[in-house]
């Protein structure tokens, strides 16, 4: 018999927490994007776990769409990082403080 769903859910919660901590503390925009990927993967793992427990394919279809949105997000996000790097010569988010009052 497979392990209970709660094990995978707790694992996904821990992965989400690690990703959130990275987004909150790291300065490099590239690392922050990687941490957002970690959080998205945690949610995907939760979707698949509930899909198995509830016996519904909708969870896996949701993961499919999350992957598409993640790919689009990474494409645009890295484009922004490249554009900012051209102007500032840095990927640190601390450099982007023009809107500070």
């Amino acid at each position: 018999m497979n392990v209970p769903a709660a094990w995978y859910l707790v694992l996904a919660a821990l992965l989400f927490g690690v990703g959130a901590f990275g987004v909150l503390t790291r300065r490099s925009a590239l690392i922050m994007f990687m941490c957002i990927e970690l959080m998205l993967n945690a949610v995907n793992l939760t979707f698949v776990t509930f899909s198995r427990t509830l016996g519904d394919i909708g969870g896996q279809a949701s993961v499919f769409f999350v992957m598409v949105v993640a790919a689009a997000e990474v494409t645009v996000g890295l484009g922004i990082v490249v554009a900012v790097f051209r102007r500032r010569n840095s990927t640190s988010v601390d450099e982007l403080s023009e809107l500070k009052g």
């Binding site: 769903a5 709660a6 859910l9 707790v10 919660a13 016996g55 519904d56 909708g58």
Partner: peptide, 30 residues
């Protein structure tokens, strides 16, 4: 913030009975 969030999630998951309900009726069964 992370400890509160993850702790809340784990508490929610530990105290809920996700698998005891009936399987979904809206989607096609897995």
């Amino acid at each position: 913030g992370v400890v509160v969030t993850v702790g809340g999630l784990i508490t929610l998951m530990a105290s809920s009975h996700w698998v005891s309900g009936a399987t979904s009726v809206s989607g096609s069964p897995l």
